[in-house]
Write a protein that binds this DNA or RNA. Structure first.
Length: 958
DNA sequence: GAGGTGTGGTAGC
DNA sequence: ATCGCTACCACACCTC
């Protein structure tokens, strides 16, 4: 068993299945490393007790490629026998961390696996009795059947078939067995051969596989063929030629369902959250000072996706046949995972499929099966929990760091724990894991690299660390990626392509590293070179450090837009999506960032990757939402606004990323701890009475708002209240005046309503801030934001409107199109002045407003006055006129105002135009110019009106 | 010097 | 065809 105990670290080119073990020193003495200690070792005893509880019928698992491997067999087979020979302890009542439901399924699965193994053994012993008639079948049994599922299971396995416990959407089930079927299942199983159980029994009787079509379950009208032709018809009627890009309303759903990176990220975040929550609970129970774990184990599946996907392809010889997981079979799809047989050909993760096929023509491409990955991952983490380490730190869906300190100083114990774990995981998932272990995270990670694939590697010789590290490429160090490697390579090798190893760095001083990579990265890298790493993986020591800090959505594939409306609709959908996630995770966020990928100038319009982003520049802009929120409307509006500020030309947009940060917990669930706290805080009796008052009033048939009657307030008072200038108001067309009036009345009503505790109660999460004002800002639909901003003249004048003038010039034509409902041509001809577009003298340039200059509203008022005057100035005996670019900037600003619901500001700007035109200062040299200005003014009101009507309609429906 | 903002890099398959 | 995500850290640069 300990035949490898004194071997040197194996090389990277090790054979598959080679399980190497490097001797401990220091804490662990190699003389203690023996089997005799096994049984007495308490931690091992515990381990054994947990295993196979409630499992009474245990037989040795089948031989597997993994176990048959000649190099590992001695060690692994021995420990495996030992593992399963342990008597189950039925008295064990210790609670399991994952709850009864999951424990139940865990044991169920375990039992099933063991039964399968028994059957396989019987079969091999009595191969004459059980001809393998189902050897090419992967069979799933649904619902109640006769004979029942257990019997069918047995028959299938005994006759060489594969029995599926779970039917994934992309499962490779060749047959589904069912006696009855619901209409819902008919749809669910439409892509499978659904057959009666008699097919199995009859086939066994006949000792040959019978024609399944004679046993189909569907009645003639639901016959498989009919279904298929139905499907074909449907598919033909759909415009399948059109590529599905981000303009499609269902794009996000479709995209995320199929994005491996999306899955990886969400799984990771979920795991993190789960362990963080558990650590939080644990730390409440015991606040004892924990010591740092002495041993760090790094456990990771070998080519996880490939191994799991291959499970549904029993015909594949995973150890020898090159396989890869990807979408589709060719082209610019990424290879997400490939097995070691494929790696021998030079295939690697992240490579495109067509390149991989060039290197390895017989490479088999398998599909993703995200559900199955998740399922296997769950088993993996359950197993990790089961060995009760000091701490578990999830690195990824298939990978974790484990801290151990309770093991006595027994090398054998650690090796045994690792091997048992590996075997157990293999038995339960059908996939192999590798384990690296050392005394810190850095070294554990490096050990894992050496252990892969399908092996174990330890390093516990601090005195020998230099030797251990010297040939390791820096790229293998955690946190050292392509960029840092490149910079190191350029610095050290002066451009030569040779891999930079740690020994190459020995000449680099700490100061140089800090100078190169900054204080943190530099120091860390320097430490790594000495084998030092103080990363702590114990979440429970400081759970709050691991709490989620942001939520984001990135879409950098399929982004192709032609019109602003498409972009806006997409941003709305993204907002909706992110708000749903905020809700699901129980957060509100106060900060919003939009990051756009813009095609780099000169990069091809269509990059080599189909609908990919190609070479891009990234531009980002963030904004404060005022108070933590997850209001879709607000976030969508802000995103559209941010998009316009960043100002990426629509045709060049290749990626959209939205991040919400400054999160606060805000569970919608009233039973949550957070809400309970807030409810206590909110306990204010008088407010409750008010609610009753309103409700009573409604019952009596009176106004919902007993203290307010809109009719009583005169128009003048209303206008005063909202600081709308009476003259400006009178200058408006009648129709528009009416709308403003209605709007203001509505706002007064809502202002009252907003103060009612009924609404606040629904949002008590925000009461934490003890600020009703902030609550108001969270919900623009209820107009509080407007009131806040408009009712205070000082605020108004201080308002900084983030419009960088030059940026707007590029894209505001599109914005105008959006707002006024006019076509782009219509917008352009709105000002039909004689001045030509080649005219370079724009107001903007003339006044040298500069780049990225931000203006307060007062500045904009003055600018407008100046601009009007400027346009009437003479140049070559003609007035300068209004330049298209200036107008773009101006409309962009107006748009921003409207987006932020600053009605008063738009009105005052309209008023300024009127006043300026009437001013005697102007040289009355051209009536066209004046009429242009009046058109612009009309357009402002038009934009406002359009927006108000939209808003009104929106509010009416809600 | 503290704090805000934009950008860049890294990790997992 | 294709599904190039996402959370986090670190840092440069800026303002106050």
């Amino acid at each position: 068993m300990n035949k490898n105990s004194n071997s040197q670290p194996k090389s990277n080119e090790q054979e598959i299945g080679d399980s190497t073990f490097e001797a401990f020193n220091g804490t662990f003495s190699s003389t203690q490393f023996s089997n005799d200690n096994l049984v007495e070792d308490p931690s091992f005893d515990d381990l054994a007790k947990d295993e196979f509880m409630e499992c009474d019928d245990i037989s040795p698992p089948r031989k597997t490629p993994f176990l048959n491997d000649t190099k590992s067999q001695g060690t692994l087979d021995a420990s495996l026998t030992e593992l399963v020979d342990q008597q189950p302890d039925h008295k064990e009542t210790k609670e399991l961390k994952f709850g009864d439901y999951e424990t139940y399924f865990y044991h169920k699965k375990l039992k099933q696996q063991e039964k399968d193994d028994q059957y396989v053994q019987w079969r091999t012993k009595n191969s004459n009795q059980f001809p393998p008639i189902f050897s090419n079948c992967v069979i799933y049994v649904n619902g109640r059947t006769d004979p029942d599922i257990t019997q069918l299971h047995r028959m299938i396995i005994l006759h060489g078939g594969v029995f599926l416990n779970y039917l994934g959407a992309k499962s490779n089930a060749t047959h589904v067995i069912a006696s009855n079927i619901t209409p819902r299942k008919i749809i669910e199983f439409k892509n499978f051969k659904v057959i009666k159980p008699e097919w199995i029994t009859d086939s066994i009787k006949e000792k040959k596989i019978l024609d399944w079509t004679k046993y189909t379950l569907f009645s003639p009208q639901y016959d498989q063929k009919v279904l298929e032709s139905d499907r074909e018809l449907k598919e033909k009627s759909l415009p399948l030629n059109r590529p599905i890009d981000a303009t499609h309303p269902e794009f996000l759903k479709f995209f995320f369902e199929n994005s491996r990176l999306h899955h990886l990220s969400t799984w990771k975040a979920d795991l993190r959250e789960k362990f963080q929550q558990e650590a939080l609970r644990a730390s409440k129970v015991s606040q004892t000072l924990r010591t740092k774990p002495k041993i760090i184990m790094h456990i990771d599946f070998d080519c996880f996706f490939a191994a799991v996907s291959a499970l549904s392809h029993p015909d594949i010889d995973f150890a020898n046949e090159p396989i890869a997981v990807s979408h589709g079979g060719k082209g610019s799809s990424d290879v997400s995972s490939c097995n070691y047989a494929a790696r021998k050909f030079g295939v690697s993760n992240g490579m495109w499929v067509n390149r991989a096929l060039e290197l390895c023509p017989e490479l088999k491409i398998l599909d993703y099966d995200f559900k199955l990955y998740e399922e296997k991952s769950k088993i993996f983490y359950e197993e990790l929990t089961r060995i009760e380490p000091d701490c578990i730190f999830p690195v990824s869906v298939d990978e974790a760091l484990i801290g151990l300190s309770s093991i006595d100083d027994e090398e054998s114990t650690l090796l045994n724990i690792c091997e048992k774990l590996r075997n157990k995981i293999y038995v339960l998932t059908g996939c192999t894991v590798s384990i690296g272990a050392s005394y810190n995270v850095l070294l554990a990670k490096l050990c894992l690299r050496k252990a892969k694939p399908n092996g174990i590697f330890f390093f516990f010789q601090p005195n020998n660390v230099g030797n251990f590290l010297k040939n390791i490429p820096v790229k293998q160090l955690p946190g050292i990626g392509r960029k840092i490697e490149d910079r190191l390579s350029n610095h050290l090798n002066k451009g030569s392509k040779e891999t930079v190893t740690i020994s190459n760095l020995s000449s680099v001083s700490r100061d140089t590293m800090v100078k190169f990579f900054g204080i943190k990265t530099g120091t860390k890298l320097f430490g790594y070179c000495q084998g030092l790493d103080d990363t702590d993986i114990d979440i429970s020591k400081n759970p709050s450090k691991f709490i989620r800090k942001s939520i984001s959505i990135d879409v950098n594939w399929g982004i192709r837009f032609e019109k602003q409306t498409q972009v806006d609709e997409f941003l709305s959908r993204v907002a909706d999506h992110i708000c749903q996630r905020l809700l699901r995770l129980g957060f509100v966020g106060a900060r919003l960032m939009l990051k756009l990928a813009r095609r780099t100038k000169g990069a091809p319009i269509d990059p080599p990757k189909y609908l990919g982003m190609g070479l891009c520049d990234f531009l980002s802009k963030s904004t404060n939402l005022g108070a933590p929120t997850r209001e879709v409307g607000l976030i969508a509006t802000e995103l559209k606004s941010l998009y316009r500020i960043i100002g990426v030309a629509i045709a060049d947009l290749r990626g959209v990323s939205v991040t919400i940060s400054e999160l606060q917990k805000c569970d919608s669930d009233a039973t949550s701890a957070v809400d309970q706290k807030q409810l206590q805080f909110e306990a204010k009796k008088p407010k409750e009475k008010k609610v009753q008052g309103i409700e009573q009033n409604v019952l009596k048939g009176g106004s919902v708002f007993p203290h307010y009657s809109p009719a009583k307030e005169t128009l003048q008072k209303l206008l005063q209240k909202h600081l709308v200038d009476l003259d400006a108001f009178k200058a408006l067309p009648n129709e528009f005046q009416q709308e403003i009036k209605l709007e203001l009345e509505r706002r007064s009503v809502e202002q009252l309503f907003e103060k009612s505790p009924k609404k606040n109660r629904n949002r008590n999460c925000l009461l934490q801030n003890r600020s009703l004002k902030k609550i108001g800002k969270v919900r623009p639909e209820t107009q509080n934001k407007r009131i806040d901003l408009i009712s205070n003249q000082r605020t108004l004048n201080k308002l900084t409107l983030n419009i960088p003038i030059e940026n707007l010039g590029d894209s505001v034509i599109h914005q105008k199109t959006e707002l006024s409902g006019l076509t782009m041509e219509g917008q352009k001809t709105l000002v039909n002045s004689y001045w030509a577009s080649e005219k370079t003298k724009t107001f903007n340039k003339h006044y040298n407003l500069g780049i990225q200059t931000f203006y307060e509203f007062e500045d904009w008022k003055n600018l407008l006055k100046d601009w009007v005057r400027f346009s009437f100035e003479n140049e070559n005996e003609k007035p300068i006129g209004i330049h298209e670019n200036d107008l773009d900037v101006f409309y962009g600003f107006i748009h921003k105002l409207i987006l932020n619901e600053k009605i008063y500001e738009v009105l005052s700007l309209a008023d300024i135009i009127t006043c300026s035109l009437n001013s005697s200062e102007l040289v009355d040299n051209d009536t066209n110019n004046e009429s242009d200005w009046r058109k612009i003014r009309g357009e402002l009101l038009n934009m406002l009106k359009t927006n108000l009507v939209q808003k009104g309609a929106c509010i009416d429906t809600t």
